[in-house]
């Protein structure tokens, strides 16, 4: 898909129009814009840090918690974030995202990523439609087959929807390092735009095959579980941040971990999930400043391996 200048202009105007809604404190300095990376199949640039919603946005009907998540999304958009990822498997997360988008005003440059998660391939379209209504958006930018469930049945549906302009990109997901063989097979044989997988400093298996394959096939990569649900940060938090982390503008372990992930040449973006405004700002900060080069990445991995 080619990037249209009209589309880009519309997005820019939309972002400008939405800014007062998102940035009520006039005169306050806006944070640095996050670095972006192009989606190989279209050239469209997306910020290298997105927002996940697993667990964190599943707050049910709790109005206070919904408003708190809306503030997280406000901070995310203000920091230049665009891509938000969810799934029908995530309980009330889609509905909570929809609530926040309605409350904040939907930014024109929102990149809405969701999944299809149902065994019966014939039910895929209906599930995507239910998800779309929960988000309250005209269409999804990206729909992925969640954990490869019934991918043989869902991918033809998603490709047909893409051809009909009902979504813009098609993807597949896995997590926890599962089913990499099958994922590689799909990447090699199907014209997908995105893959989503787990990759972090402690779990670098994807570097062996999936990430090189994604580069070779021109497939964008979204990295989930960057903090292993917080376990990775708790483990690293026992140590002080090495002084040389300042060379890549790291101010926290979260940024250390995210900078390692997003600096991989095949990775398009990481999608950390959080319930806190200060954490979303910190996460977005990882996409600003200097990023590690190959030598620094090796140093980071070696440091972690010694712990």
């Amino acid at each position: 898909m080619e990037k249209s200048p009209d589309l880009a202009r519309r997005r820019l105007l939309g972002a400008v129009a939405a800014a007062p809604l998102l940035w009520p404190a006039l005169g306050r300095a806006q944070p640095a814009r996050p670095a972006t990376r192009a989606i190989p199949s279209s050239g469209e640039a997306v910020p290298r840090v997105g927002l996940g919603s697993w667990i964190t946005f599943n707050v049910g009907n709790d109005r206070v918690a919904r408003d708190a998540r809306a503030e997280v999304m406000r901070a995310f958009f203000l920091a230049g974030g665009r891509l938000i990822d969810s799934s029908p498997m995530y309980g009330s997360s889609q509905e909570v995202i929809g609530y926040a988008l309605k409350k904040l005003g939907r930014p024109a440059n929102l990149f809405a990523a969701d999944k299809v998660w149902i065994s019966d391939g014939a039910e895929g379209r209906a599930q995507i439609e239910r998800s779309r209504r929960l988000w309250g958006i005209p269409r999804f930018d990206l729909v992925q087959v969640h954990n490869l469930l019934s991918w043989q049945a869902h991918l033809p549906t998603l490709f047909a929807m893409k051809a009909a302009n009902q979504l813009r990109y098609v993807g597949i997901t896995t997590s926890h390092g599962r089913r990499h063989d099958e994922m590689a097979q799909i990447m090699a044989s199907q014209p997908i735009d995105f893959v989503q997988l787990s990759y972090n400093l402690f779990d670098r298996e994807a570097e062996q095959r999936l990430l090189p394959l994604a580069r070779e096939r021109g497939i964008a990569v979204i990295v989930n579980r960057p903090f292993q649900q917080g376990a990775l940060l708790r483990r690293l938090g026992r140590h002080p941040l090495p002084p040389w982390a300042a060379e890549i503008d790291c101010r926290s372990w979260a940024q250390f971990v995210l900078k390692f992930i997003i600096s991989h040449p095949a990775v398009t973006c990481a999608i950390p999930a959080t319930t806190r405004v200060d954490h979303v700002r910190e996460n977005m900060g990882a996409a600003t400043g200097r990023l590690p080069d190959q030598a620094m990445r090796a140093r980071m991995a070696a440091w972690v391996d010694r712990r």
Binding site: I55, G91, L149
Partner: peptide, 22 residues
């Protein structure tokens, strides 16, 4: 989701402790 047997309870937990008690 396939390969259910490879998932532990913590992988399948959909909500936080805070949300549960709330």
């Amino acid at each position: 989701m396939s390969e259910w047997w490879t998932y532990g309870p913590r992988d399948l937990l959909m909500f936080s402790q805070q949300t549960y008690y709330r």
